[in-house]
Design a protein around this nucleic acid. Structure first.
Lengths: 192, 192
DNA sequence: CGACGCCTTGATAAATGTCAAACGTCGTGG
DNA sequence: CCACGACGTTTGACATTTATCAAGGCGTCG
């Protein structure tokens, strides 16, 4: 069961879909493109909480306001779903609540994996990031990276230089090849 | 609405409540004591995912098996709630699903805050940990630490030595005082 | 009172961050 | 189709933070 209906909304690159602290009146489902959610600290550092790929839901809040900001990484099409349309007490209400519970539990599991990732060293973080992306893009070995090194760094809790160095080291070790900075071919996963 | 009913089960210190990979047939609610959930890496490192205090729910899984291990930190009383008793399709089913959704969303929000915490430096991690614990223990200024330095370190992604050093530095800066290693008095939160 | 577990402290090492500069890539316009 | 420019990425030298290893102290509970 998918919750979206109607026409998707179009967003250009780096455009805000919703902002931290704004009222959370909608849920969202990505049709195409890529989304990042993040939070910014007082000192300007940014933590990317998640990336979302086509087919995935984001902005699922039970609270009244958004905890993160959501932006497009590249031009994207987004289904916008009114929360109030889903909370009706009806025969369908139970089913929809169950669906929301399943989606929230999925988000929780992903966030738990993210916590585990942040404990590891730089090589493991980058390696697991690539593996996860490959799985979610449904590709065997070649990954398209929609996001910049800065986005990846802010997701993994590293600096852009460290991310770059790890990728270059993985390349030298023939674990991956980099036809271009935004394309990664996984060659030997045992070296991650 | 609370989901537990009947008598709580008693657990001694460092006793396992459920194990990673085991079938998730129950939900749990802590009556007294303290629980930690964690996962262990191949190399033996341990990541503590969460601590739970009296009144809080844990082990809420939608999947069939547990993702983490749960253990008591100190002797504890735990309400054990059969999942299958909650999933009945009934008039109450809708309410219970809504309650589970709210609890799962709360767990997600805590995990998201944990991710943000892991990006900060050692002082900020320890400081925020103390503040959060004070809030959850419903105390103004004096915190009881049920857990060891090792538990705290494994939760914050630090070593036991670093946690100890940060606490000593906070003490020297009069941000806190330590009547004993397991009791912390918050004296000046602006110094965190 | 003694012993064990837990915590603190110190010296040194390793990983990652910071700062700076050069290099590539890709899109744009001539 | 080629040249240019901007943005993004890579690379290097050095600084900082935290981990590691080792030893000593102190609390708590028999």
């Amino acid at each position: 069961m998918e919750l979206n209906s109607g026409a998707p909304t179009s967003f250009s690159r780096n455009q805000e879909v919703f902002g931290e602290g704004e009222p959370a009146e909608y849920f969202y489902r990505l049709k195409s493109g890529c989304i990042r959610t993040y939070s910014t600290f007082r000192d300007g550092r940014r933590q990317v909480a998640s990336f979302y790929l086509p087919g995935e839901y984001f902005g699922l809040e039970q609270e009244k306001i958004h905890f993160f900001t959501a932006e497009t990484v590249i031009p994207s099409l987004v289904y916008v779903i009114k929360r109030s349309a889903l909370t009706k007490r009806s025969a369908a209400g139970n089913k929809i609540t169950s669906r929301l519970l399943a989606l929230t539990a999925l988000e929780l599991r992903r966030t738990q994996r993210h916590v585990l990732l942040l404990l590891k060293n730089a090589r493991e973080r980058v390696g697991q990031f690539l593996l996860e992306l490959a799985e979610r893009e449904h590709t065997q070995s070649e990954i398209q990276l929609p996001m910049t090194r800065q986005d990846i760094a802010d997701y993994l809790g590293l600096t852009i230089e460290t991310v770059s160095r790890v990728l270059m080291r993985l390349k030298k070790a023939t674990a991956i090849s980099l036809p271009s900075p935004r394309r990664v071919v996984l060659r030997d996963r045992s070296l991650f």
